[in-house]
Simulated scan of single mutants.
Amino acid sequence: MIVVQEQDFDLQHEYAALRQDCPSIGAIVTFVGLMRDFNDGDNVKSLFLEHYAGMTENVLADIVEKAKSRWNLQAVRIIHRVGNLLPSDQIVFVGVSSAHRGDAFSACEFIMDFLKTQAPFWKREQTEQGGRWVDARRSDEDSAQRWEK
């Protein structure tokens, strides 16, 4: 399941959906990204996330398919929020279930690394100095590149 939405998500619901009462599942790994109140040395009051509808979901689906081709996964769930977010708001959920923890951990990290570098999201922060677009981080690119080796 891949969803891009404005509304918040419920971790218990998402965990239950990954579990599916399936006895072959031995591990569930989840990641939740939160909006921080700082970036590049400045206080951040809010973050506005935009995306390219349709294209974003297709890119995320491609990332999931790549993960499924590398690891034995039972289920994958991605929720990414858009719109105006405030500090401590949940931004992204990635959940992976698998028979083994190694596959689940690796796939969850892989999905996040490629989501950060390939998915068409644009971020505009509101700081005390005004609004600014957030550029991609070199560290995110480095994290994604390690999977290519």
Rank of each mutant, 00 (worst) to 15 (best):
F48E: 11
E57Y: 06
V64W: 00
E50S: 07
M112E: 00
F110W: 04
S97P: 09
M112D: 02
Q90A: 14
L60T: 05
E65W: 07
H100P: 06
E50I: 04
A75I: 06
E109T: 11
F48M: 09
V92E: 11
W71V: 10
D89R: 01
P87V: 14
I91R: 08
A61R: 14
F110A: 03
G83V: 06
W71D: 11
L73P: 00
G54L: 07
N84P: 09
M112R: 08
A75P: 04
L60C: 09
F114C: 13
A119Q: 02
Q118G: 11
N84C: 14
F110C: 02
Y52K: 00
S98R: 02
N58L: 12
C108Y: 04
L49E: 06
K66T: 04
A104D: 11
R77S: 12
D89A: 03
G95N: 05
A75Q: 15
T117Y: 14
H80R: 05
C108N: 08
S69W: 12
D89I: 07
I79K: 09
S88K: 10
S97K: 04
A67C: 08
I78K: 02
H80S: 06
S69E: 15
F110N: 02
F93A: 04
I79F: 06
I63D: 00
E57A: 08
K66V: 00
Q74S: 12
L115P: 07
L86C: 10
N58R: 14
H100D: 08
A75M: 12
N84Q: 14
L49Q: 13
E57N: 08
